[in-house]
Structures are given as C-alpha cells and as structure tokens.
Computed example of a mutant assay.
Amino acid sequence: MVIDYINGLKTDEIFAMSKYQSEIHSRLNNIKLNKIEYPNLSKVAGVNKAVEYFAYPFIVKKKVNKNNIKHITRQDLAFLLELTDLEKTIVTCHDIIPIAYYKTRSPLWKLNAKGLRKAEKIITVSEFSKQDISKYIKYPEENIEIITPAVDHSLYFPNSSKKCLSKYGIGNDEKVILYVGAEEPRKNVQFLINSFSKLKNKIPHIKLLKAGTPNYLFVRKKLLEQIKALNLQNDVIFTGYVSETELAEIYNAVDLFVFPSLYEGFGIPPLEAMACGTPVITSNTSSLPEVVGDAAVQADPFNVEKFAEEMYEILTNEVLKEEMIRKGLKRSKMFSWDISAKKTLKIYKEL
C-alpha cells in the first residue's frame, strides 16, 4: 500500500508531531510513503510559511496519486483540502488550539477548519481533543479515531545519573526541576517561574532547567525580564534544543518533572519523564488528567503558592516520591507505539 504522505516542511528536527508520525510509520513495514514535503529554504521567520501557503499546494497537486490514500499529518496543513482536490483523505489533528484556546479569527485557520471538515477521517490523540474537534469544527464524532502517542521504552527508561547536568553548571548536591516544551502563553512558563521562586525560599540549592527551543522570541524576552526581577539569573537555565538521547539523560538526572500547561491535545513529555522513573506534576486541565491518571500530581495551574507546595512535598517526601515513581513507570507502559501503529494501519485499510 502506498500512502501520499503530506508532511509539510522537510526537517530533521524531532518535535511532538514529527515524533508521533515517525514512531508510528517506523512500525508499518508494509506501507510505502510517497513523502510530499517542501524544502527548508530559510531560517528567517515567515519565509518557509510563505512557501507553505503559496507554493506547497501546487507541489501537493503535482505529486499526489489519485488512487492513493492521502494522509495530511498536521492540522495546520488542513487548508490544503480547501485549495486542492484530494480524495481518500485522512488528517491527523493533534489539537485545535488556535480555535479552541486562543479563539483566533485568522483567515488561515478558517481555511484549516473548512479543510478538516472535508477529511474522510480525522485521527486525533485524546478523548479531550476528539470532543474539541467535534465541538468547534462541527465534525462528526463517528469519523474521528483516537490514536494516542506513546513512549519509546528502548530510549526512555530508568538510568539514573547526574553526569549530563555538569555541562549546565549544575552540581551533584543541587536539586533540579525540569520543564520540557515551548514557551508560548498556554504553556504557562511564566507561572512556573513564579512558583519556582516561592520554592527556592524553602530549598535554596535548586535549579529550574528548561529544555526546548524558544519558538516565541517575544515571550523569551519577557521570561528573561521576569527571571531578572526575581533574581533567578543563576537558577533558571535554558538548554535550547536537545537531541532525544540527551533528553532521556536529562529526564533521568533531574529530581522532578513539571508540566503546568493550560491546554494540551495530549502532552508526551510527562509520559517520557515517567518512563525514566522521574516523578511528575502536571496541571489539572485539558487532556493532561487523561494522560497521567493517578500516576502524577495534578495541580491548579493558576495557584502559584499551591504549585510550589506540591513541588516541595515531592522533593522532600521520599515515600511519596517512590510511590509516584512506581505508578509512573506502570502508567507509561500503558501507551504503546505498536498498538498505535496497528490502529493507523487499520484506518488505512478501511479507507
């Protein structure tokens, strides 16, 4: 079976959506992908997006095969269904954050919404996202399939060592909290820094490590101003982009993983942290309770003091910490890339 795999920008970087697709399709041995992508022409903001909106529809139209199933791998490429005549289409829609959370009036997202309605099947990653797609896009629930992300346990597993933290100037005697992800407002990083500041009053020798690219430069600027105002310049460390191998090492090296996001379609990092035997605190919003179950502390992502108390409790209560590690390891094994791959193959065959 050949799938016209409409994947957008050609890149070697691994991030949440690309990881999801690569993990699933690496397990589909009898599927051949006709990858339809556009080249990475510039690092200047906006250039590649211009190519995506104005040139990519023509690339797709030229390279698709009428008889193949067309799989559009991201929700923000759904506009292609409005601009090109595609049959037998699946769209993987991880979330509809611009519509459901940011309430955007963007013409491009109106096009994406129209495109999503034209898909014969939508794959999404959680029951929460399924309900949002049905509610905001007015797409029939019976045509939405949930295929969850998972964890590669050959990469993410307990292997405790603090060695990798030395490159960030972190000593063996310091406690370390980790956040992995972007910095856009819904990720709630500003809240986390405020809460970390409260925690530092109780645990002086502690660092907050933030892994991932800035993605919103104006937000990074505000975060740096906030860090300076709180006198945390030596205590909050930005790693930038890290490879998956290094990320697994970092998960193992830290004492606590936090994920205070206000809105997530799924949220893979909490599962990865659990798989490495690291206790987790998430917010109690959107899909995150569905992801972590009772294996993580679910905290109010608006209450700075309470969030700091929850972090302090885990960092100082060994009995609680060990219980969370045990539950987290068990929870992470409930999500399987092999099962997700089988469900994807079933949809391809049905279509």
Rank of each mutant, 00 (worst) to 15 (best):
I3V: 15
Y5R: 08
Y5K: 05
K10Y: 15
E13Y: 14
E23N: 12
N29Q: 11
N30I: 02
K32L: 07
L33I: 04
Y38T: 05
P39S: 10
N40W: 13
N40D: 14
L41V: 12
V47N: 03
F54Q: 03
P57V: 01
V60R: 02
K66T: 10
N67I: 11
I69E: 07
H71L: 12
I72R: 01
L80F: 01
L81W: 04
L83T: 05
L83Y: 01
L83H: 04
D85S: 10
L86R: 00
L86N: 00
K88G: 09
K88T: 02
T89F: 00
V91S: 00
P98V: 10
Y101C: 04
Y102D: 12
K103V: 09
P107R: 13
L108S: 13
G115E: 01
R117Q: 10
K118M: 09
T124F: 04
S129F: 07
S129N: 05
D132R: 11
S134Q: 12
P140T: 04
E142K: 14
I144V: 08
I147S: 03
T148W: 10
P149H: 06
A150F: 09
A150M: 09
D152H: 12
H153W: 07
F157K: 15
P158S: 11
K163D: 14
K167D: 14
Y168R: 13
E184Q: 15
K187C: 01
Q190E: 15
L192I: 07
L192M: 10
L192V: 03
I193F: 10
S195K: 06
K202I: 15
K207R: 12
A211Y: 01
P214K: 03
K222C: 07
L224H: 09
E225L: 09
A229I: 04
V236W: 04
V236K: 02
F238T: 09
F238P: 06
T239I: 03
G240K: 04
V242S: 09
E244N: 13
T245P: 07
E246I: 05
A253Y: 13
V254C: 13
S261G: 07
G265L: 03
G267F: 00
E272S: 07
E272G: 06
A275N: 06
I281P: 04
S283N: 11
V291S: 08
V297E: 13
F307E: 02
E310I: 07
Y312E: 11
I325D: 01
L329K: 04
S332L: 00
M334A: 08
D338N: 11
I339K: 14
S340W: 04
K343R: 11
K349Y: 13
K349D: 09
